[in-house]
Amino acid sequence: MPDDHFRPPDGVVPDDVDPVFLNVADAVASWLGADPTGHGLAHAWRVFNTAMSLADEYPAADRTVLGAAALVHDVHRAMGLEAGEYVHPEDALEEVEAVLSGAEVTEEKRDAILHCVALHEEYDFRGDRRDPDRIEVELLRDADNLDAMGAVGIARCFAYTGAHGRPMWTGDGEDALDHVEAKLLNLGDEMHTDAARAVAERRHAFLESFLERFRAECRGQA
């Protein structure tokens, strides 16, 4: 089990969550439980909550597939920390399948979950986004991207860059603010669903407001 320091805070895990999701979370804890970069269990549960909320507008979505995919989608990030280099989600599917098997997720559901995980981290602004063929892929992408926006997105950005030894702001393109500008400000345009676009608009505005305030404070102007 993960160290208490990295456990999701009270209120993040729904009180009435289906036991199948608790099984998946327990099974993936050995991968995500000690993550210091903003891709740990708390992030997984936030993506889960957001994805399930978005899915209320899309009754055709398989909520078991979507919820489980949300909880396991960042195993590749943990593998990357161990390897010291980025690992693509498709290169983590064997490990994800082992997690799902350990949680006794059915084979039929596992295949769909693995498909969602394989396609979830692709972006138009980066030029590598493949068109999703399932609503669950769209919802997972949207929920994951929303967690990189707004107040939580900023907090995760500084956790991520700090864990990788990068400074807050130097102006040389290798700092936390560059990550906000190069990636986070582009995420609003990546949303697939109308439900996510409405949330993204508010979170994007917060990102812009934060950047303006941050720079002003650094210059002693606020």
Rank of each mutant, 00 (worst) to 15 (best):
F214D: 03
Y58F: 11
A69Q: 04
N186K: 15
H39F: 12
R202Y: 03
T193C: 03
G162P: 07
P89A: 08
A61Q: 10
L114D: 06
Y160H: 15
D128E: 05
V117K: 04
P8A: 09
T170M: 12
V152D: 12
H5V: 13
V20A: 14
V13E: 09
C157Q: 14
D133Y: 06
A60V: 01
V24W: 11
R77P: 00
D10W: 02
H5A: 14
E121V: 06
C116K: 03
C218I: 05
A69L: 05
W169Y: 15
V137I: 06
L71S: 12
G102N: 12
A92G: 08
G80K: 06
A29Y: 09
D142P: 08
T64G: 05
R197D: 04
L119I: 00
W31K: 06
G11P: 08
R213A: 13
L54D: 03
L211M: 14
V17S: 10
D131E: 14
F158E: 08
L207H: 08
V12P: 00
M149V: 12
D18M: 06
S101A: 15
D144Q: 07
A143S: 14
R213Y: 01
L184C: 14
R46I: 01
V96A: 06
A61R: 01
D144S: 13
W169R: 13
F158G: 07
H73C: 04
L207N: 06
L93D: 05
R134V: 01
F21D: 09
A112I: 01
T193P: 10
A42G: 04
V13T: 12
R110V: 02
C116H: 05
A155W: 11
A68S: 15
T161W: 03
T161K: 11
E90V: 13
F6K: 11
G150C: 09
F21R: 07
G38I: 01
A34W: 02
E190A: 08
P89E: 09
D4F: 10
R77K: 14
V199G: 00
R134E: 04
V20R: 15
G38L: 03
A155F: 10
R166N: 02
L93W: 03
R219P: 00
S30P: 02
E85P: 00
V96K: 02
R130F: 00
G40N: 09
I135Y: 01
D131K: 13
A68Q: 07
Q221R: 15
V65L: 09
F158M: 11
P2F: 02
G11Y: 05
L41Q: 10
D91W: 02
Y58D: 01
E174R: 14
M168L: 06
G162R: 11
D189F: 07
M168G: 05
D18E: 15
D189T: 04
A61K: 02
E174K: 15
T106C: 13
G40E: 04
D147C: 14
D128R: 05
E201T: 12
E82W: 05
